[in-house]
Design a protein around this nucleic acid. Structure first.
Lengths: 122, 122, 122, 122
DNA sequence: GTGGTCTAGACCACC
DNA sequence: GTGGTCTAGACCACC
């Protein structure tokens, strides 16, 4: 399971981990009932400290996204995807307002959306 | 001149100041040759320490966005807008890829863009 | 024999098992001379590892509450109930002091006690 | 400001800190607008690590009990006391059920409540 | 000075 | 092996 962390970002690592777990749930890579990587495994994989992953998982549990199974690890709950997706939509809305204020036209944005959907990028 | 800072954001205040100055240049509120608020004035206005604004201006100067006029303050250079805009576009592209991966359809995104441009929000 | 364990509590499972055995002695469900469930049986019943129950029983034995009968299992000793009850009373006293400090009146507490005794809850 | 931590309790230190801050709000020792001890000060006072206090405060902030003021520390919000008090009441109710199950009579409990309120203990 | 994040490493409970 | 808590200490942003 692939996680990409930007260590130079102002976004804290534990927040990036949370976002990526949510992303993997949204895109179907993780489904309800699936186990996510153990704290120690993921920490080793992405080269961060155990506590950093533990904090991300703890917060995801508080948000109801995952659930700790005793001695087995964390499993994805059957949380409504729409709940998570809503956060992304709100982020997009803020971004568009920023672009609008910066004088970027609606047409420009629409064409960027089109080109991104026509690209092969994953 | 209006600056809105989110003090609870993970984005450092000095970065938010930088982004907003760039935004004002992009939307035409600030033009080449214009003086931007003095460090002391802006610090007082948005309620932050002088050092915080000073850092934002220092970095903007390093990026060639503004230029210190001795004893008079900082003026906007005649930097290509496209240079600044590019940063925003790249941010948008990343966001769209994220939404795409999360299973949000092109149609949904387009309709969100439309609705944001029809709203009255600033 | 019914044991209810809260796996998300900060109180370790082995401590919860100890408390429940003591509770069953206090309420008469278990009397001196009675055999308590075997380690294996109880572990299976409540879905925990054998070691966890073993630890609970070991500590109960150290406290003189139960006694291992060779090859037969653990029996309840004829320990004074008052000894066990004292622990509970002390816990209640601490709780009342906490409520008192928090500004909860005696009358409020008395009415809560009444309502709990009138309820059907087990 | 006095905090008493039981390092042998199964209740994690950060939870004990949270409970005591809430207790001080309930008994009026801390009022809305008051600053609570800084993370570093409290950590030193009670002899625990900075991170432990930080976690307690972070969670209290999530619960809306305190609020971080940039560069100044944490202040008590004007949260409804009743909200915090409710947690204590629920704890009391659980305790009473435990006692009831253990065969402690209503009369015994009532007399313990009386005696606690007549004592001088703080 | 304030809070926020992260590391390396320890020890515990439970499996 | 799993997660949970805690320490000692570092560095950052902001005051």
């Amino acid at each position: 399971m692939w996680f990409s962390i930007d260590f130079h970002s102002h976004v804290p690592v534990y927040v990036q981990i949370k976002e990526q777990v949510k992303g993997k749930i949204l895109n179907g890579e993780l489904k309800p009932g699936d186990f996510i990587p153990s704290i120690r495994t993921l920490a080793k994989d992405i080269g961060v400290n155990i506590n950093t992953v533990a904090r991300a998982y703890r917060e995801l549990e508080l948000e109801g996204v995952i659930r700790a199974e005793r001695g087995e690890g964390y499993v994805v709950t059957d949380i409504e995807n729409s709940k998570i997706k809503l956060e992304l939509i709100e982020e997009l809305e803020k971004m568009i307002q920023k672009l609008k204020q910066a004088g970027v036209s609606k047409e420009q944005i629409l064409s960027i959306v089109e080109s991104q959907f026509n690209s092969d990028k994953q």
